[in-house]
């Protein structure tokens, strides 16, 4: 069982990202779960989304999890939200930021002892450059593909194209570019 927690603001696409990831992963024959905690949240409010991935049907409906991956798609939430909650020794962090890794870690005391498990990528800039709007979910998926090593980039892009099939070609192309660039830039 792999468990993933997304930290996002309502409107940044964490729910779509989590569901999109679930959709892609289901095409590899795995069982998936994607859900979110947003209640009656307003756009811009901090919220969390979750994924579970397993080989057998997922029947745990609890919100509580010890995440294997924490994906932070809003730069400020790395500072204001409790992103290391329920951390375990293997938890990997992918954080969107314009800072380099050392600068970021220096400013967040909770990450000091987890340096080798922190990865950074500027999903905001990447989505602005490729999609034209600050929708950081697609680049985060690219970074996750790289860090998790769970898929080949080409296979992931192919599946993602099918998930996005209802959108115009221009939007599909922009998302592919965002995923690819984040895959290459995350470190």
């Amino acid at each position: 069982m792999i468990e993933i927690r997304w930290h996002s603001r309502a409107g940044q696409g964490a729910v779509t990202g989590a569901k999109g990831l679930g959709d892609v992963v289901s095409r590899t024959g795995k069982q998936v779960q994607a859900f979110a905690l947003y209640g009656s949240a307003k756009r811009g409010a901090a919220m969390r989304a979750y994924n579970r991935i397993d080989d057998k049907p997922i029947i745990n409906h609890a919100k509580f999890m010890l995440p294997d991956y924490v994906l932070v798609i809003d730069p400020a939430l790395a500072f204001t939200d409790n992103i290391t909650e329920n951390d375990k020794p293997e938890t990997q962090y992918i954080i969107t930021t314009h800072l380099d890794k050392t600068e970021l870690i220096a400013q967040i005391p909770e990450l000091q002892d987890k340096k080798d498990r922190v990865h950074v990528v500027d999903c905001m800039q990447i989505s602005l450059d490729t999609i034209g709007r600050a929708i950081p979910n697609a680049p985060m998926l690219g970074a996750f593909v790289k860090v998790s090593g769970m898929f080949e980039l080409e296979d992931f892009l192919e599946s993602m194209k099918r998930v996005l099939a209802k959108f115009p070609q221009k939007i599909i192309d922009a998302n592919m570019a965002a995923i690819t660039r984040a895959y290459n830039e995350v470190n």
Binding site: A18, D23, V32, Q33, A34, F35, A36, I58, H61
Partner: peptide
């Protein structure tokens, strides 16, 4: 079905 726990949880 349970609100959010089922209604908003995507699965296979």
């Amino acid at each position: 079905q349970d609100g959010f726990l089922t209604s908003h949880t995507a699965q296979n």
